[in-house]
Simulated assay, not measured.
Amino acid sequence: MGYFEGFLIPLRQHRLFGGKQVTTQYSGGRRAKKKGDMASDSQGDEKIPKPERLHGRHVLNRYEDGMEKCIGCELCAGVCPAKCIHVRGADNDPENPTSPGERFGWIYEINYLRCIHCDLCVEACPTEAITESKMFEFSFTSRQDAIYTKSELVVDDAGKAKRLPWEDWRDGEDDQTSGWMRATSPSGDATFEGEVGWSNELGYGLRAPEPKQAERDAHDPDRDNGDRPVKVVKR
């Protein structure tokens, strides 16, 4: 491919030339912060829609009664290939337990300078305590800010992720977590599609399962469902 042909690629993707415009006007939340409205998505501060299975910033969930799901088993830290998770468990107070089990996550830290968002921690967690939101816009000003502690990761009393000053949250970015990826089809068994495979969560109750494959295909405009003619190439 020559130099000029390479320059034509982004032009073909622009809407003016009949393509799909990929780049949007996004300031990283700066314009929204100046207006005092972090939910603003207009006038050059719009995020593109994100896939439902996107791996973003982690949250530590609670049950509907407010108890923490984390039991301090440290499996997430053991499976992490980037060694970015540090967990230490402690025994629950029988009179005032933090979690339903015998132990709870006393210390929980994630170093986002190391995290690769592989979601293996979500896969390993036996209680669905750790999941990932769709928010991935971080703007750290110090290394210490990049190390999230338990107080920053545990959801608030409404079940919502705590929104820190250096994060650019928008509406819907914590509506669905990556629980879908780990609980929809265990061991590749398609019979589990459309079935709830996880426990309730504070603020959300029992999340709805991911639609079955046929339903997803019917709503996917980029997938050939047999309605379009198929070109046959003769050899």
Results as ranks from 00 to 15, higher is better:
A77I: 09
G66I: 04
P126Y: 00
G36Y: 05
T141D: 11
S40N: 12
D93R: 04
V87Y: 00
P81K: 04
F140N: 07
C121V: 06
E68P: 00
G105I: 02
R114F: 07
V59Q: 10
I85C: 08
V122C: 04
K34L: 13
K50R: 15
Q43V: 03
D41R: 12
G66A: 03
E46I: 13
A124F: 00
A32V: 00
F138Y: 15
Q144S: 05
Y112A: 00
G72K: 01
K50L: 15
K69M: 01
C76S: 10
F104N: 02
Q43K: 08
P81T: 03
G72D: 00
Y108F: 15
D93P: 06
F140H: 12
Y148N: 01
G101K: 03
K50E: 14
P81F: 08
G101N: 07
T141K: 12
R143E: 14
E132K: 09
I116R: 06
G101M: 02
H117R: 03
E95V: 08
Q144Y: 03
I110W: 03
T149S: 14
I107W: 09
E64C: 09
D93Y: 04
L113Y: 01
R88L: 13
G89E: 07
I110N: 02
E52M: 12
R114L: 13
P81C: 04
E137A: 08
C115Y: 09
Q144F: 02
G36N: 07
G44A: 08
D37P: 04
P51T: 12
D45R: 06
H58V: 12
R88P: 00
V59R: 11
A129Q: 04
D37V: 13
S142D: 10
I116S: 05
C70P: 03
G89L: 09
P49C: 04
A82K: 11
G89F: 07
D37N: 15
H55W: 03
P94G: 02
N111T: 02
C76V: 09
H86L: 13
E132S: 13
N61K: 11
I130C: 09
P81H: 05
E102T: 11
E132A: 14
P100K: 01
S99Y: 00
K50V: 15
V122A: 13
F136I: 09
E102L: 11
E128M: 08
I147S: 05
S139I: 04
T98V: 15
G89H: 07
D45F: 04
E52Y: 11
I71N: 06
P126L: 01
V122N: 07
K33S: 05
D41L: 06
N61R: 15
A129C: 06
E137R: 08
E52I: 15
G56R: 07
N61S: 14
